[in-house]
Simulated assay, not measured.
Amino acid sequence: MLYDYINQIESIGLDLLFAAVFLLIGLAIKDVLKQGNVPPFGRRIVWLVLFLGCAGFVTKGVIQLSWEGSGL
């Protein structure tokens, strides 16, 4: 029975792995910004870039789900 759902389990596991990687990257960036005394404008730019990367990943997932649902 588990073998029937292996693709779905693998997909969910990969998504969780990417979410964990984004979280760890965010924590590392927060620490580097704090230790480096980066000005507020620079911090905003760094967080904007990180957010856009994460948003692109989420958008890709939504597009992939919609295409798979429509049969493409």
Rank of each mutant, 00 (worst) to 15 (best):
L2H: 07
L2W: 14
Y3Q: 15
Y3R: 15
D4Y: 14
D4E: 15
D4W: 15
D4M: 14
Y5Q: 15
Y5H: 15
N7P: 00
Q8T: 15
Q8G: 03
Q8N: 10
I9S: 09
E10M: 12
E10Q: 12
E10P: 02
E10F: 10
S11P: 02
I12T: 08
I12W: 03
G13K: 14
G13Y: 07
G13W: 08
G13F: 06
L14Y: 09
L14M: 07
L14C: 01
D15Q: 12
D15S: 08
L16T: 03
L16W: 06
F18D: 11
F18W: 13
F18Q: 14
F18P: 02
A19Y: 10
A19P: 00
A19I: 06
A19Q: 05
A20S: 12
F22T: 02
L23W: 08
L23C: 07
L23I: 06
L24W: 11
L24E: 03
L24G: 05
L24T: 04
L24I: 08
L24Y: 07
I25N: 05
I25H: 12
G26D: 13
L27E: 12
L27F: 13
A28Q: 04
A28D: 09
K30V: 00
D31C: 09
D31P: 00
D31H: 10
V32E: 14
L33A: 09
L33W: 05
L33Y: 07
K34I: 05
K34W: 06
Q35G: 01
Q35E: 08
Q35C: 03
N37Q: 03
N37A: 08
P39V: 07
F41V: 13
F41D: 11
F41C: 04
G42Q: 09
R43M: 13
R44Q: 07
V46T: 12
W47R: 11
L48R: 00
V49I: 13
V49F: 13
V49N: 03
L50P: 00
F51L: 10
L52Y: 08
L52I: 11
G53P: 01
C54P: 01
C54N: 04
A55L: 11
G56L: 08
F57V: 01
F57D: 01
V58Y: 04
V58D: 00
T59S: 04
T59I: 03
V62I: 13
V62A: 09
V62D: 03
I63Q: 07
Q64L: 04
Q64I: 02
Q64H: 04
L65P: 00
L65C: 01
W67T: 09
W67C: 01
G69V: 03
G69F: 06
G69H: 04
G69M: 04
S70H: 08
G71I: 02
L72Q: 12
L72A: 09
